[in-house]
């Protein structure tokens, strides 16, 4: 098909609005790669679509990126799901079975995680902060009462000494 005929056919418009058939898409990609004028016409149509969208743009609510960011963070915190070297552990287990009573007994899959790290919910940071602050308060109280107690004992000692002197 001659490029101009292809441009006039309306396939480009159908493509940018997502209504082109699979066959039309394939044809378009070929024409786009072969003829620069088709590529240019498509770029212009894409710009038209962008202009329409720009005019109809709606500012997302302020917390929208936060929601996306939180969900991305959740994905990062999720431990990688790399396959555990099961073969090696199975061999280990077989050795255990061989050393033990039976070889054809039930085979268990170890479910305990090998990672030494623990993942907890963000809400726990407030609990940890509270424990830290309470710990500091208790420590302060302990020091204060210790000093108070020591002073009281010293005063008692002095009083006892005075009493003894008076008795004499």
């Amino acid at each position: 098909m001659i490029p101009q005929q292809f441009i006039n056919s309306g396939i480009l418009e159908a493509y940018v609005t997502g209504s082109a058939s699979e066959q039309e898409v394939q044809e378009l990609l070929y024409m786009k790669a072969t003829y620069p004028e088709v590529d240019e016409a498509l770029a212009e149509l894409e710009l038209d679509m962008e202009l329409i969208a720009r005019e109809m743009a709606v500012m997302p609510p302020p917390g929208t990126w936060g929601k996306i960011s939180d969900r991305i963070d959740d994905l990062i915190l999720r431990p990688s799901e790399e396959p555990v070297p099961y073969q090696a552990r199975q061999q280990q287990k077989e050795q255990t079975y061989n050393n033990g009573s039976t070889q054809t007994g039930p085979q268990y899959i170890e479910v305990e995680g090998e990672s030494s790290h623990m993942r907890i919910h963000k809400a726990w940071r407030w609990a940890f902060a509270a424990v830290f602050v309470l710990g500091k308060i208790f420590l302060g109280c302990a020091i204060y009462f210790y000093l108070e107690n020591r002073q009281a004992q010293m005063q008692m000692q002095e009083l006892k000494t005075e009493l003894k002197q008076l008795k004499k």
């Binding site: 962008e50 969208a53 720009r54 109809m56 743009a57 709606v58 500012m59 997302p60 929208t64």
Partner: peptide
């Protein structure tokens, strides 16, 4: 997101 979220949300 900064560049296109408004346009996409409008659509």
């Amino acid at each position: 997101y900064t560049k296109y979220s408004g346009m996409l949300l409008g659509y």
